[in-house]
């Protein structure tokens, strides 16, 4: 599913809303998450997951072709940790322990 397919689904379910408004709603959600991460905040959506930015320290890298040492600046990397409910849904609706109990039974 792409962003435009997501917008099409929402438009079909909400005939009272104009398409540009639906596009704005979807854009606002992802923009708001991005802006929060850029500020160093996290975004926690219970049941779905949490977005955070993990810090990577500055390090000395190497140019793989010449072997020369190159300083690599520190940076932040976006990270998504799926929530429990979504993790279980993706995995066929069962927590690992329950699935194991079934195999052993």
């Amino acid at each position: 599913m792409t962003k435009s397919e997501l917008i099409a689904h929402l438009a079909a379910e909400n005939p009272h809303l104009r398409q540009p408004d639906i596009e704005l709603i979807v854009a606002t959600i992802f923009d708001e998450i991005t802006t929060a991460l850029a500020r160093g905040d996290r975004v926690e959506l219970r049941g779905f997951g949490a977005f955070s930015a993990k810090k990577r320290d500055a390090r000395t890298g190497r140019n793989p072709r010449t072997g020369a040492a190159v300083p690599v600046a520190g940076k932040a990397v976006p990270y998504f940790k799926p929530g429990k409910e979504l993790r279980e849904r993706v995995n066929g609706g069962e927590p690992q322990a329950a699935a194991r109990a079934k195999v052993e039974a």
Partner: peptide, 19 residues
């Protein structure tokens, strides 16, 4: 570090789109 939740995102939609 602050944590945003559904409420913050819903508020952003409210102020951006006017629903």
């Amino acid at each position: 570090m602050n944590t945003l939740t559904r409420a913050s995102l819903a508020e952003a939609i409210y102020s951006q789109v006017g629903l």
